[in-house]
Design a protein around this nucleic acid. Structure first.
Lengths: 198, 198
DNA sequence: TTCTTTCTACCAAGTAGTAGGTAGATTTTG
DNA sequence: CAAAATCTACCTACTACTTGGTAGAAAGAA
């Protein structure tokens, strides 16, 4: 037994993250899933509906991951490092962040989708802000860090690094940026990972 | 007298930065420039040719701006702040970075274009690396900063912030991230801009 | 004249989406 | 229970329109 709807979401996500929303067609997706193009419309009436479902599923997966990090990582810096490692899978697979890809096509997208994407980012920012504030209180984050501004910066840095290192240095380049980011948040003289490669 | 080729480049850049490469068509561009669609092919034989010309012009503009910053700004931190302000125009106009937009559509793009974009990013990274190394030598950048890794991080952060704040908080959000970025590079206890708004 | 630029009028291929039908499972009803 | 109605999942075949690109004529400029 094969869950076609799930398979459609899986393949569509790959296609979008690889080439953008405008860059893939129902024909491409039909070929990837091996059903006729018209059958996709049975599961997702319009392309915009599909995109909504894509973002919802992606968002839910991140929700679970964020909760897992809070449970599994004790301090703020290791939580942020773990958060950064969520993006690493994308770099390794050569796939951009779904929401970044969609955000870039902005004006060409249905308005309601843009709202979904904005909510995605805002949720991450709020989560990081809490993690940072907590880290400052417990002393493992430099006290001069402003949680609200730095939370935005963390998401921006990771999204940018994923975007860029997918083309350039790949996982190695991404890891370097993640380390530099964490080092900039930790108290002076306390480097979390000892990579002395330049 | 009207330079059609220049006008085409101008409008095409706006269209791409607004909605992506796949997201705009020769028909859209024809309407923006008020000539027939077929006439565009006289100036740019194919869409890929147009994209190449777009990146070349964009790259040249940045070259000039980078040289101007070196000439006009004395220290590393103010140079990086000025570099960051180059992106601000995009946030204000609601336009993404041309190369970021193209980078995201990766697989759907002509291979040669991807090489152009990679070179664009690498040039910026090299420039920032030199600025940072110089800043460390002269003491205005924290000595624990690793120029190579931090240069990548600076580009990533600004590209990410442009991508994200175009949807979210706009110029204000971007400026916050730029300040946090600079604060993280400057020696401890030395905040360049005194915005105490959390 | 000759070269450049723009035009009208196409084209083949691709786009999302629709119409209408079929096979089979599930539910409802007598 | 069995017959009838409904639903799910998919199909073929199509529509209306857009895509990048071409051919060749007409208009401008040197």
């Amino acid at each position: 037994m094969r869950d076609t709807r799930t398979e459609l979401l899986l393949q569509a996500e790959i296609l979008v993250r690889r080439g953008g929303y405008a860059g893939f067609s129902y024909a491409d997706l039909a070929e990837a899933v091996q059903i006729r193009k018209a059958s996709i419309h049975h599961h997702f009436r319009t392309k915009a509906d599909l995109a909504h479902a894509l973002v919802a599923a992606y968002d839910a997966r991140y929700d679970a991951a964020l909760a897992g990090i809070l449970a599994g990582e004790p301090d703020a810096i290791s939580r942020i490092a773990a958060y950064g490692r969520l993006y690493l899978g994308g770099v390794e697979a050569g796939l951009g962040c779904l929401c970044a890809v969609l955000a870039i096509e902005g004006e060409a997208l249905p308005e309601s989708l843009r709202a979904d994407i904005a909510r995605f980012f805002e949720k991450h920012i709020a989560w990081l802000e809490a993690v940072l504030a907590d880290g400052i209180a417990s002393g493992c984050v430099r006290p001069s860090v402003k949680p609200a501004a730095s939370a935005r910066m963390v998401v921006a840095t990771l999204e940018g690094a994923l975007l860029m290192e997918r083309l350039l240095a790949g996982p190695m380049g991404f890891r370097g940026t993640l380390d530099a980011l964490c080092a900039g948040l930790a108290p002076a003289g306390l480097s979390s990972r000892g990579d002395d490669t330049i």
